[in-house]
Simulated assay, not measured.
Amino acid sequence: MALVQEMHIRETPNTYIHHDQLFKQLIQTFFEEFLEAFFPEVHKSIDFSALKPLSEEMFTDLLEGESRRADIIIETKLKKQETIIIIHVEPQSYGQPNFHERMYHYFSLLYNRYRKPVLPIAIFSYDQKRNEQNQFTVSFPFFHVLIFQFLMLELKKMNWRSYIQTSNPVAAALLSKMGYTEKERVQVKKEFLRMLVKMELNPAKAELINGFFETYLSLNKHEEEKLMEEIKQLDQHESDQIFKLPNSWREKGLKEGLQEGLKEGKMQEKRQVALEMLKEGLNIELIAKITKLDQKEIEELKRNL
């Protein structure tokens, strides 16, 4: 069975390349996990030991006269067959009225090229929910010539909470493109970090997942501060692991930890000075004035002498 991941991003050239490479790298690296999370029936039917990337194909879009590149084409075995799967990633915020026809066009070109069965899959990553067609037909009142269908994943319609208990790296990364409200942004990021810790990926893969997520869900300063506070409320071991992740949270956590450590060190120094003053017989009011410690704390130190 052959898997084809095809990523077409209709935006400005620089934006196209950026998003194209992000989705391509994510799905190529975690192809099995991608199908497991979103297309479990397909996943059950594929022999992943037989994966073989094929060369990228450049197609001419007959609808608009533009060139399109099939970025990911992977061949593998499916029930003693060799099938090509097209995964079409469309990370843009506006729709394409003829998208279903375009999918049929790519399907036809790939079939003509390889002469093997093709399973097409489209991934929609719009910023707003849309109702997409997954069927293209050619018919007459007296006869149906063609009914073409493709599998599709509409990320904005996915409930992000349905995936946070999994250990799937693609699901974790794509939380950033799922259906959450503005008020849930901090919660989504926190659950993403918890998933990342639980998966225990190597640094390179963790960096890929985190970089993808940050591209599509980047918190503002106020949200970051709120997130930091929520992370501190987690179990100590879990929060420590989050701050060890290869991202900005590690740097921020270390910086704040250092600042808190210095602050605590100064407090310990003040307490030691207060103890020495108590031993010298100075009164509590004077010690409080010099050290800036609370009088009740100094009284507690005196009782423990």
Rank of each mutant, 00 (worst) to 15 (best):
S108K: 10
A122R: 00
S108G: 09
I85H: 05
L155Q: 06
L151T: 04
I9S: 08
H8P: 03
I46E: 00
A274H: 08
N202T: 02
P141T: 02
G265T: 02
T83W: 03
M195P: 10
F213D: 00
E191D: 13
F212E: 01
K79A: 13
G265H: 08
L254W: 02
P120I: 04
F30Q: 00
F140E: 07
R303K: 07
D47P: 04
K221H: 11
Q5D: 11
Q272I: 02
L109G: 07
E32M: 05
W249F: 14
M267F: 11
A70C: 15
K302I: 03
N304F: 07
F212K: 00
S162H: 10
M103E: 09
K232F: 14
R250F: 08
Q149Y: 15
A172N: 01
N304P: 02
G261R: 01
F140S: 13
A204G: 01
Y104R: 08
L151C: 11
N304G: 02
N202W: 15
N210S: 12
Q187W: 07
G253M: 01
I287D: 03
F34V: 00
N304V: 08
F243V: 02
V170E: 04
G179I: 08
S67C: 03
H105Q: 15
S49K: 05
D20I: 01
R303Q: 12
E200R: 09
Q25E: 12
Y104N: 14
V197M: 03
Q128W: 14
K252V: 00
M1A: 10
K129R: 07
H88D: 14
F192S: 05
N131C: 02
N98F: 12
E184Y: 13
M152A: 10
P246Y: 10
M267D: 04
E41T: 05
M58P: 11
S167M: 05
L151I: 07
H8R: 02
M228H: 11
I17G: 01
H100Y: 12
N131E: 13
F34N: 00
K129M: 12
L275V: 03
D235S: 08
M195C: 06
K77I: 06
N283I: 07
L110A: 13
S248M: 05
A274C: 05
V42L: 14
L119D: 00
E182H: 14
N98I: 03
F48Y: 15
K156Q: 15
M152R: 11
I147P: 07
M103Q: 12
G281K: 05
Y94P: 00
Y126V: 03
R69V: 10
